[in-house]
Nucleic acid binder design. Structure first.
Lengths: 204, 204, 204, 204
DNA sequence: CTATAAGCGAGACGGTACGTCGCGTCTTGTA
DNA sequence: TACAAGACGCGACGTACCGTCTCGCTTATAG
């Protein structure tokens, strides 16, 4: 029914795709999403603009693809098995793995993707689906186990607990505009845990 | 010493300034900072582009001026006297005043300003100086008093306490992309207060 | 070697080109080159400014292209065969064809092109190459034949003879700012011919 | 009746006027009328734009004032007394004085004024009145005397004779874009004189 | 001998146009 | 039919001048 036929993914050239993603990620690292252009990515990748528009709806989508693709690989390794039994230790490890080990020096790329997402609902949805939801799911699972163990108060919504923790990191990234080191991550977890822990034997 | 002389603020036309700020705020409300242009603001305000460039370095600066100006006026009224003595009540009132009463329906404007600030350090600095720092100072003061009263644990850095609270709201605005109602603000405060209150037998 | 690659003329859109030239010529006729703008040509032709800048270096070049293109067509018809054998008749016919029949009512366009050429050496060169040189060559050839026939003094440089004739017309156009009719062209030729004809007993 | 009162010439500041004219002439010499701006003249002269607009209608008028003022002074000296009795010698001297001695190295300034005059009828009129008419009058007078002496054919209109001569120089300046040296001036006069002289005793 | 009306410097202002960049769509030629 | 290349209509960029205006300051008649 549509006049403009959808492209056939089977005929997509993998080398071309790789060149575009690499160029996009390099440029995002160097100067951030806002200062990039599709035109620039095409030139750097040695690719026609048409080819980019064929496979991605916006520059944000290209960069998200490039950046989240890299990230997903690294995350899978790291979040394999943090089963210590000690919730505090596990939590801190997970946050460090995610926020320092994985995002690490691409934090400004991430910030610029979130910025772009403020006026690009599709990008926002994609970001949540591909990155935030999966990461949240893992932590949520661990929190639920901690509640079963009695290490986290049972009346707390795990989703809200995650927000209490992660929101601090996003605040530092997006509002304070400051870098995040290990000490800060520790502090973030400690402050959140004050509120998450059960109120002692009397409170139980 | 500078070749391009700075314009003399005394010769600035107040009507023109008002027209620009009004146009900018209207447009920001309607479609967000990202879809605006200096060209558009100038046209809507019935003003030469040059006049805008003379007094503001970027469209972000114009919108911040327009938006924060309006806000500051409203905030002064609201944050006059929240002295209940009950920290929880005071805190909730302050947050509601700030986040619902003041930012309120301009939340998307605020989100787009923060987005813009990700690649505009001057705008980020201005935003922190004009809006975040003053608001933070007021809350910080109230927390300190609560610590003196024994309503908040003495070993907590008030600045970090503020982050623990506000970060949740920013997260919802920028990352979750969801609106904030009174119930959510209550929940935000309750969750944070769990961790802020003094522990141990005395607190029970 | 050049960083900004030259555009490929093969990919030039003939319709677009025609629309630009037509708009440019119309506007030049209506109000003269000085009051035109690239912006205006683009708007009238329904074309992006970039497209004009891609193919022409300046508005003068566009108008010259449009005007001289039209002219060349008209001139080819007219200067087909003025072989009367009578130099005076031939000369007068050539001048009338060129200055009245061809330039005719576009004399102000021509004047404004020459004006523009005063501060645009490239335009001046192009004007001489495309219009003045070819026209001069034809007349020069006829003068040479007249010298062989003994109708023009042999010791006169044909190029200077042309200047003696045409300069009067350019003077009237550019300095006196007056129109040129047939009677004036006759007078121009007569006055010049006084000096060009062979002197002495043979010529009497 | 008019709302905007005419300025009072008696209160005009001579230093200011001089500064403007000097700046204008310098700039015209350096880069030509076309590349100048009222704004630029004002800045260079250390003068408000208003002051220029008060006394001159256009930048062309300013430059003409500056250039022709200088020239008039120089011309008066030179054209004092060329009464040799020999018309050819007198004519050549007059042309050399005017075209080389007086216009000389400001020939490009003159060319740019004529260019400007193509789309500024007031400037054109002023130019003819202040410069061309007076110079023409002097030469015309001399030609008339030569006709009385029998050195120039009596049936020639002196005005047309002047055009025959000067047009060649204007052509070289405006159309050919070439400099004029003494040899060329000689040639111009020689070529014109061929046609101006009486046709020998038989023709009388 | 003062006051009041210029001239003047400075430059803000609403505009128009500049020449450039990037958008997203398109067409052309190659593999 | 995917792709490199890039022309195209379009909208916006940030800058230069336009010609008009308003502001204080100074100068120089006219009451």
């Amino acid at each position: 029914m549509s006049t403009t036929r959808a492209p056939d993914p089977a005929r997509r050239n993998p080398q071309t795709t790789a060149a575009i993603l690499e160029a996009a990620l390099d440029m995002a690292r160097e100067s951030g999403l806002a200062k990039m252009s599709i035109e620039g990515i095409a030139a750097r990748a040695g690719v026609g603009k048409r080819t980019i528009y064929r496979w991605w709806p916006s520059k944000g989508a290209v960069v998200l693809d490039a950046w989240a693709g890299e990230l997903a690989a690294r995350l899978h390794e790291r979040l394999a098995a943090p089963h210590t039994g000690d919730f505090e230790a596990d939590l801190k490890l997970m946050i460090k793995d995610a926020w320092i080990g994985t995002i690490g020096e691409t934090r400004e790329v991430y910030a610029s993707i979130i910025a772009e997402a403020q006026h690009d609902p599709e990008l926002a949805a994609e970001l949540r689906k591909r990155l935030i939801a999966p990461a949240t799911a893992l932590v949520s699972e661990r929190i639920r186990r901690a509640q079963a163990d009695g290490q986290v108060a049972a009346d707390i919504d795990p989703q809200r607990a995650i927000e209490l923790i992660y929101a601090q990191l996003y605040y530092r990234l997006l509002v304070a505009g400051l870098p995040t080191d290990e000490a800060y991550v520790e502090d973030v977890a400690d402050l959140a845990l004050r509120g998450l822990r059960p109120r002692g034997p009397a409170g139980a």
